[in-house]
């Protein structure tokens, strides 16, 4: 065998490639993850559905409630109407869970993970590049949902004589927080997806943590609910898109400490996911 690596003949008709730099780095991984996300129709559908459903449910709900309320403007002003404007987030988080989970699990169900890891064998790069892209996309979509919901909802409540603007006490933080909450849901599911590597399993567990657990604790004795309820992912996380921090049972966290608890769950899931992603055979 002679050494031919220096001058490789160029394929007929193809321009020669630039010199290989010998590093498929993080920047390349980021760009490739972005291409992956935007080039799959089902991802785009999922995100479009998240926006339409999230904003749509908010609009419907606020229209219904504002047109049927018997409360006066003064009474309404004491309610957390800011949070109420964004209530489509409850459904939007479900779509975010699906988005976050699929971002990893689809790689396994399609077998694409083998291609991904042969292009970029340093798995930490792949994991974090994916994580960054999912976070950014979820953030943009989440903020669109929360801001659009807020403005549409404010419009309905204005007809009842309640003025809601971003400068209303705590409103700006809560509306930004709505988007952040959705990012947390996507990240929680992302971590679970990386740990389980199974679409149905990951979505189910994500849904169980965000929805079902809340229903189940209703069956607990009051004394237990007092201690446990505020720690549940939804109850803790939803403080960040509220302007009032009261709970049906027991006490509640403040906006940012609640969000911290919520993101803590996401971080635990992500660490588990990273551990599995790094260690297990693809």
């Amino acid at each position: 065998m002679s050494t031919v690596t220096d001058k490789v003949p160029v394929f007929a008709g193809l321009a020669p490639l630039p010199e290989a730099k010998g590093r498929a780095g993080f920047g390349g991984a980021l760009r490739s993850e972005w291409t992956k996300i935007r080039s799959v129709k089902s991802t785009l559908w999922t995100l479009a559905a998240a926006i339409v459903i999230g904003v749509g449910i908010s609009a419907l709900g606020n229209w219904g409630q504002s047109s049927h309320t018997t409360e006066t403007a003064v009474e309404l002003a004491h309610k957390d109407l800011v949070q109420r404007t964004m209530f489509g987030i409850i459904l939007g988080q479900l779509v975010m869970v699906v988005f976050g989970a699929l971002a990893v699990t689809a790689e396994y169900s399609t077998g694409m993970i083998r291609t991904s890891l042969s292009a970029q064998p340093r798995r930490l790069n792949v994991f974090f590049a994916k994580l960054v892209i999912v976070t950014l996309v979820a953030f943009v979509v989440g903020e669109i949902i929360s801001f659009a919901s807020f403005f549409i909802g404010a419009h309905f409540w204005a007809t009842k004589g309640v003025t809601l603007t971003l400068s209303t006490h705590g409103a700006l933080q809560a509306v930004i927080g709505g988007g952040l909450y959705l990012v947390g849901a996507a990240l929680l599911a992302f971590g679970i997806g990386a740990a389980l590597r199974h679409t149905a399993g990951a979505i189910t567990l994500g849904v169980a943590l965000l929805f079902v657990i809340n229903i189940i604790t209703n069956f607990m004795p009051t004394s237990w609910q007092n201690d446990i309820d505020k720690w549940l992912p939804y109850n803790a996380g939803s403080q960040v898109w509220a302007t009032q921090h009261v709970a049906d049972v027991g006490t509640s966290f403040s906006a940012w400490s609640g969000f911290g608890v919520y993101m803590g769950y996401a971080v635990i899931a992500l660490i588990l996911g990273l551990w599995v992603f790094e260690r297990r055979d693809a």
Binding site: S42, I53, I57, L60, G61, G64, Q65, F87, I90, L91, L94, V95, V98, A101, L102, T199, A200, I203, T204, V207, F211, V212, I215
Partner: peptide
């Protein structure tokens, strides 16, 4: 994924949110 999302949305979310109408 689509079907699970649909059924979960109906079962856990929409079924409750409807009450608010």
């Amino acid at each position: 994924a689509g079907a699970i999302t649909g059924i979960v949305a109906l079962l856990l979310v929409i079924s409750n949110l409807i009450q608010l109408i």
